[in-house]
């Protein structure tokens, strides 16, 4: 499918759910490419950028944010109905975001402490990824997303090819860049081996361990890394839990790791229990 051959410009929509707006901002951040994008598509719905709105259906919907209210759980269905191609952008939309920390606590306790009148707060007990509610055609990872990947995604969509956005670990980017591994050379815990590539190994290149902004890679072995952290890098259990409970706390593979304290088990046998966490790439394949 070559969208550009159809004669009219494809309509682009950008939707916001529970999020900080950082990922939408990446689109505005495209600077040089932004005008080219505006030339190639009709920016039909993007309230952060423009008040002018055209009616759907939309060819390409970029969805930011997670589902945290009953109202949003309904709204995302409408968005899906008016979208030909729906791409979720960022850790909130792909894994529930930092606000998924509520999933591990009783949310009514939070509302009682924070708000004078908690009875006005209508929120769900959990913050969940868009894919938990509707079918998603592609997930663009990151907190925030990488603008080069966003441009690549839009470019690939426009000429009907698969985007060049691999699902392997950050380590591969780290090694291609020639960085020295902070885990091996300094004993710094790094989530790179279980984290999806996309950032270009930003933190390891600045002597820090990876924080896991891009969520689980396509075949993460969290239990093994965990065993090494505890046995060899002397990482305490509370630090270990904190490492996985950040922007992608809601990702299944990262939760599995934290829950399964101690020894590694269930590694990479042919029927891999971790495959449950791999559905992102199944979704991803639908773009081609």
């Amino acid at each position: 499918m070559n969208v550009m051959k159809r004669g009219r410009k494809p309509k682009l929509a950008v939707w916001k759910f529970a999020s900080c707006d950082g990922c939408q901002l990446s689109l505005l951040d495209c600077e040089d490419e932004l005008l080219t994008i505006a030339d190639a598509v009709e920016i039909a719905y993007f309230v952060e950028a423009s008040r002018s709105i055209s009616r759907g259906p939309y060819d390409l919907s970029l969805v930011e944010g997670s589902i945290t209210t009953p109202h949003d759980a309904e709204r995302i269905r409408r968005v899906r109905r008016v979208s030909r191609f729906l791409v979720t952008i960022g850790a909130c939309a792909t894994a529930g975001g930092i606000q998924a920390l509520r999933n591990f606590r009783d949310v009514s306790e939070f509302t009682a402490r924070v708000y004078a009148h908690p009875e006005y707060i209508d929120t769900l007990a959990t913050s969940t990824a868009i894919a938990d509610h509707v079918a998603v055609d592609f997930e663009l990872r990151g907190c925030p997303i990488n603008k080069h990947q966003l441009v690549e995604l839009i470019g690939a969509y426009l000429c009907g090819r698969k985007p060049d956005i691999p699902g392997h670990s950050v380590c591969t980017e780290c090694k291609r860049a020639g960085a020295v591994c902070v885990t091996v050379a300094r004993g710094t815990p790094c989530l790179g081996p279980v984290t999806h590539a996309g950032c270009g190994a930003l933190c390891p290149r600045y002597d820090r361990g990876c924080y896991g902004c891009y969520g689980p890679m396509d075949s993460p072995n969290v239990p093994s890394l965990q065993t090494w952290w505890q046995d060899r890098l002397a990482v305490s259990e509370s630090d270990l839990i904190r490492a996985y409970r950040s922007f992608n706390a809601g990702a299944v593979a990262f939760q599995a790791g934290v829950a399964r304290k101690g020894r590694a088990d269930g590694g990479g046998a042919d029927t891999d229990p971790r495959d449950a966490a791999l559905d992102s790439s199944t979704r991803r394949d639908r773009i081609s």
């Binding site: 591969t172 291609r176 072995n221 093994s224 269930g266």
Partner: peptide
């Protein structure tokens, strides 16, 4: 099977 439990499939070995 045993080594697959430990291996992270991170590809560092092949890169170096």
């Amino acid at each position: 099977d045993e080594v697959a439990q430990r291996c992270l499939a991170c590809a560092n070995c092949t890169m170096v």
